[in-house]
Simulated assay, not measured.
Amino acid sequence: MPASAVLFCLVVAISDGDTLTARCGESGAYEQVKVRIAGIDAPEKAQAFGQRSREALADMCHLETATITARTTDRYGRTVADVQCKGQDVGSALVATGLAWVFDRYSEGYEDLYPLQRDAIADRRGLWTDPAPVTPWDWRQQRRSSARQ
């Protein structure tokens, strides 16, 4: 999907708190698109709050028509995009409720998410109820390091 392309797609599956599958296109010529929500990183499924994050994304988007604005493609071939469901920016909603982090490494252009994250931390929402939450990128790195030993 070209960057900046805007599609209206039916969300048919939720992988985790920051990844969904959408069916885009005309009837009889659908294309399944795997979408990674831009600017955020949600806890992994096996990580604390991973299931809650996935459920929150499902509540917002599953079987809804999403507005998907493509930004780029990641190394796994997923479309990285801004996603809106029910008129709400999904990345902002997940960060504001404490169910995703601002993905520091890919936050350029998404600086508006930081105040939402600061508010979630201050109010101890979602994963911020944990006194020492582990970012998904650190959690994945720890898992890779353990697997090598």
Rank of each mutant, 00 (worst) to 15 (best):
L94I: 04
R52D: 15
A38P: 00
R52Y: 07
Q149D: 10
A120F: 13
M60C: 11
A46C: 13
G87E: 08
E55H: 11
D119M: 12
D89R: 09
V83T: 01
I68H: 00
P136S: 12
C9N: 04
R105Y: 12
V134S: 05
Y30A: 14
T73L: 09
R75F: 09
P133K: 09
A13E: 10
D59V: 09
A66V: 04
R144A: 13
G98K: 02
E26D: 07
Q84E: 15
A46Y: 08
C61G: 04
A122S: 15
R23L: 14
W101H: 05
G17P: 08
D16F: 06
R125G: 10
D130R: 12
Y110L: 06
V12A: 09
R78P: 04
W128Y: 15
G98N: 03
C24N: 14
Q47P: 07
A70Q: 07
D119I: 13
A38C: 03
R118K: 15
S53W: 01
L10C: 00
L127W: 03
S53Y: 03
L127N: 00
A122I: 13
D82P: 00
S145D: 13
R124V: 09
Y110E: 07
V83S: 02
V90E: 00
E44N: 07
E44L: 06
P43C: 04
L116F: 02
V102T: 10
R105L: 14
R78K: 05
Q51F: 11
V12Y: 05
K45L: 15
F8S: 12
G25L: 04
W139C: 07
V102H: 03
R36F: 00
T73N: 08
G98I: 06
Q149K: 11
S146D: 13
E64N: 12
R78L: 06
E111Q: 15
F8R: 14
I68E: 00
C61W: 07
R143I: 10
T21G: 05
T97P: 00
V90F: 01
G50H: 08
Y114G: 04
K86M: 14
L7M: 14
T72S: 15
R23E: 12
Q149M: 11
G39N: 03
A3Y: 04
D138V: 14
V102W: 01
P136R: 07
I14N: 02
T21M: 13
R105G: 14
V102D: 02
I40H: 01
A96N: 06
T73Q: 12
W101K: 04
L113T: 03
S53G: 14
T19C: 07
S146H: 13
Q142M: 14
G28T: 10
Q84A: 15
I37T: 02
V95A: 06
I37A: 00
D112Y: 14
R36P: 01
T135L: 05
S146G: 12
G109N: 10
A13I: 00
F49C: 09
R54P: 02
K45N: 13
D123Y: 02
D123W: 03
A42G: 02
T65I: 15
P115E: 13
V83Y: 03
D18W: 01
L113F: 09
A56E: 06
D89I: 00
E55I: 11
L127G: 02
T79V: 15
R54H: 13
R118I: 15
G39F: 06
